[in-house]
Design a protein around this nucleic acid. Structure first.
Lengths: 173, 173
DNA sequence: GGATTTATGTCAACAGTCCTGACATATTTT
DNA sequence: AAAATATGTCAGGACTGTTGACATAAATCC
């Protein structure tokens, strides 16, 4: 679009070969923020899961079954982006432990509607509360006026498909 | 501190049984933001790693070897929080591929100082640039004035140990 | 109503990453 | 010289993800 820009030192568009240096260094820093923050975020749940001999995959399945409505196996596969066989192993365990129960779909009897048992919900709430506490404390420490910045950047990091999924889920609640 | 607060409906401290509802719902939302944003953040690197038949563990080792100074095996173990045996497998591969080279420590000859070969650095830069681009575009989309909010919240999510590690690394650069 | 598609489940095999436990070597520190 | 430290390695197990092949039941298409 613009050859020979009038001011060669001025910040340029983000896809230009000569990028704003501050955006680049902020992004460099953010690479590490993502790594360390996500690790500590998952750690608080991992400690609870360990006591129940469950892994992260069980946590994710439990979460989306428990926070969704009329969740089918297909929905779960879409949300988690894993193969049917991977999910089956995880779901099998949760069902055998009595944390998840299946019902034949009322409209489409091929579907298996998944929901949490009382026990399953209790575990999920424990997991959610542990992560919620960490985040609540982080928001308070950072100052709640910064929350909107955090939200907007995280949303922008997400790809189209996931932000659509996120908004769809949010609408349902 | 304050029994029988004057206004029972007012938001209370974050560790009180009656918490601010808005903080809780923001935290609930953030649980999903963390999940989806991190997944898409790692995906851009995973696509590159796939072409080289490498995994995330290789990425992490490559990253901390390449961005640190005089990195030893011990430092890497501290940073990654994995066992020596897990790291050995990953490092073995990177060394065999010629992406990482080892030198005997000058001060302590028991140590193995790790650094990237030219080829290793080229791959690391490719990986960093992919994630940096995603983040840069997210910052621009969200508005760069929100960046500080994102930074502060992410820092607050990190535990003591990791934020100390983060600041130590930042100081070195 | 028979053919096709869809939703789900399952068997088998393989790969990557993490773990525990045990032991070996070289080097530094006490 | 003995103990501690930094690193490496062998063996085996767990979890989570993959591909490929097949099976069943129910819905949909023509």
């Amino acid at each position: 679009m613009s050859d020979n820009p009038p001011d060669a030192d001025a910040p340029t568009a983000s896809d230009s070969p000569r990028r704003a240096a501050s955006l680049d260094s902020a992004a460099n820093e953010a690479i590490e923020l993502m790594f360390f923050a996500y690790r500590d975020f998952t750690d608080v749940a991992d400690r609870i899961l360990e006591q129940h001999d469950l892994g992260r995959a069980h946590h994710r399945a439990l979460y989306f079954v428990g926070t969704g409505q009329d969740v089918t196996v297909g929905h779960l596969l879409d949300t988690l982006n894993i193969t049917k066989q991977s999910l089956a192993r995880v779901l099998r365990r949760l069902i055998d432990l009595g944390l998840v129960v299946q019902e034949v779909g009322a409209v489409d009897r091929r579907q298996r509607l998944l929901r949490l048992s009382g026990e399953g919900d209790a575990l999920l709430q424990e997991l959610i509360e542990a992560q919620r506490r960490l985040l609540r404390e982080a928001f308070t420490e950072a100052g709640t006026e910064r929350l909107e910045g955090f939200r907007r950047v995280m949303l922008a990091i997400m790809n189209e498909e996931d932000s659509a999924r996120f908004n769809r889920r949010k609408r349902l609640r």
